[in-house]
């Protein structure tokens, strides 16, 4: 084999360098940590205030017509009153239980806080009230 017949070996061209992904991953991780830290998780529930469908449910047991509704007033400081008597949470629950499934009407004053109304509704529901309604006074036109 002569010198002229020598085989020329070429290295394959090195593959083009990829655009560095490290910087992108860094940015992504920083964004991820940011959103993980700033997100707050609230377990939210709801209490129906208006439900038009419930009026059409004819299969619901009718409330005892003889039982008079239990009227609970809520004062400006959030305390519930029944027949003018201020009650704490246990006494209120006992009154609702004694009402024996009678409808519960809640009349809060306008300056009471939302939490006070929700607390009274919560106590009444836990004490077995099946029908809780919120009423309000309207100014005479």
């Amino acid at each position: 084999m002569s010198q002229a017949d020598a085989i020329i070996l070429r290295r394959p061209r090195p593959p083009r360098a990829l655009i560095s992904l490290v910087a992108m991953i860094d940015v992504l991780l920083i964004l991820l940590v940011f959103f993980m830290v700033t997100s707050t998780y609230l377990d939210l529930d709801m209490i129906p205030a208006v439900s038009q469908d419930e009026n059409t449910a004819s299969t619901a047991p009718l409330p005892d017509q003889r039982s008079r509704p239990l009227m609970i007033r809520i004062g400006a400081d959030g305390r519930p009153f029944v027949r003018g008597q201020p009650l704490d949470d246990q006494m209120l629950a006992a009154r609702v239980r004694d009402a024996n499934g009678a409808p519960v009407l809640i009349l809060p004053t306008g300056v009471a806080q939302t939490q006070s109304l929700v607390t009274v509704m919560d106590i009444a529901t836990r004490a077995g009230a099946r029908e809780v309604r919120v009423i309000r006074l309207e100014a005479r036109p």
Binding site: D43, I47, P48, A49
Partner: peptide, 11 residues
Amino acid sequence: AREVALVVTPS
């Protein structure tokens, strides 16, 4: 309105 609900939280 057919459905109006108050948002509450259990804790």
